[in-house]
């Protein structure tokens, strides 16, 4: 194999050391990926192979039966639709509302700005589940339990602080000189926001909404508490399914794969944003 000089950080590194490191690295990767691999492996096995005391590392006769049976479950498709609807409503609302607040924090110096930042950062740390009891009682009183709207509202609050904070970062990244140039050319402040900042925040809006999608899609405790089995999302269906028929491992793993696909795809798309966004700030501090 060719030498990668740029890979070598320290001088005087032994060949044996690299071999050891590579072996450890490969071993680590294999252990990490194994559970994921096992889910896939199980999902494509017929029931006779799933329920076998000598598990095989490849499906001997691969089948799509498990996927068919998961998709055929009475509540699977409704749960998927509910999940999509709730997620779309919460993410869209969080984006619109959050963008406005992010503009204020990023572009204005005003009395109370620090307080707003403190609120936005602080509420992210309140364990949301702790608020589930009063939220449940409030929504119950407002007749919003067992409704998609009620869940969307709670998800909106779940996503909003993060949305504001992230969009603020993206807007801060746009040079103020652009605003000023546009204003000299006769743009009003709203026009600057609409014509300069909004288009330039595009990638940020996409990244933020994708992250919001993942958060809302993965949530199952709140919806499980607020809604009846008919109005669950896919993740809650996965939990519900488990208690209903605990040992149907094949269909359960197939359902888990279908549920994970949108999240995994989206995550891999914005992965760079999540990782660099976090470290860029922390390294500077």
């Amino acid at each position: 194999m060719a030498r990668h000089d740029e890979d070598v950080v320290t001088v005087g590194r032994s060949r044996a050391g690299t071999v050891t490191a590579n072996t450890t690295g490969i071993l680590f990767g294999l252990i990490m990926i194994f559970p994921v691999y096992w889910v896939l492996n199980t999902a494509f096995k017929p029931d006779s192979e799933v329920r076998s005391f000598t598990p095989t590392f490849f499906p001997a006769s691969p089948t799509l039966d498990n996927f068919r049976s998961a998709l055929g479950e009475e509540l699977f498709l409704p749960s998927m639709l509910n999940g999509l609807l709730i997620t779309a409503m919460a993410v869209a609302a969080a984006l619109v509302v959050g963008f406005l607040a992010a503009l204020a924090i990023a572009r204005f110096q005003f009395y109370g700005r620090r307080a707003i930042i403190l609120v936005v950062l602080g509420v992210q740390l309140v364990p949301f589940l702790a608020l589930l009891i009063p939220l449940f009682l409030m929504l119950q009183k407002a007749n919003l339990t067992n409704s998609l709207i009620g869940v969307s509202l709670t998800y909106l609050v779940l996503l909003l602080p993060y949305t504001v904070w992230t969009l603020r970062g993206f807007i801060s990244g746009i040079p103020r000189e652009l605003d000023e140039a546009a204003m000299i050319d006769g743009c009003s402040r709203p026009q600057v926001f609409w014509k300069i900042i909004l288009p330039l925040t595009g990638p940020g809006l996409v990244a933020t909404s994708v992250y919001g999608f993942i958060q809302a899609w993965n949530e199952f405790i709140i919806i499980n508490t607020l809604n009846s089995p008919q109005k669950q999302n896919l993740m809650a269906w996965l939990l519900y399914n488990q208690t209903e028929r605990g040992t149907a491992w094949g269909p359960l793993m197939a359902g888990a794969i279908i549920t994970s696909i949108p999240v995994v795809v989206f995550f891999l798309l914005i992965q760079r944003n999540i990782a660099t966004g976090l470290t860029a700030g922390a390294v500077k501090g």
């Binding site: 194999m1 990668h4 890979d7 950080v9 590194r13 050391g17 690299t18 490191a21 590579n22 450890t24 690295g25 490969i26 680590f28 990767g29 294999l30 990490m32 990926i33 559970p35 994921v36 096992w38 889910v39 899609w217 993965n218 199952f220 993740m235 996965l238 939990l239 488990q242 359960l252 793993m253 888990a256 549920t259 994970s260 999240v263 995994v264 995550f267 891999l268 992965q271």
Partner: peptide, 28 residues
């Protein structure tokens, strides 16, 4: 310390684990 190919493999393995929803990981 690892060579580029191994690093890529480690990254890919970790990305899939990171992307996996908590509940799906727990079920696994």
């Amino acid at each position: 310390r690892v060579t580029r190919g191994v690093r890529l493999f480690m990254m890919i393995a970790m990305m899939f684990v990171w992307a996996l929803p908590q509940l799906v990981a727990a079920q696994a």
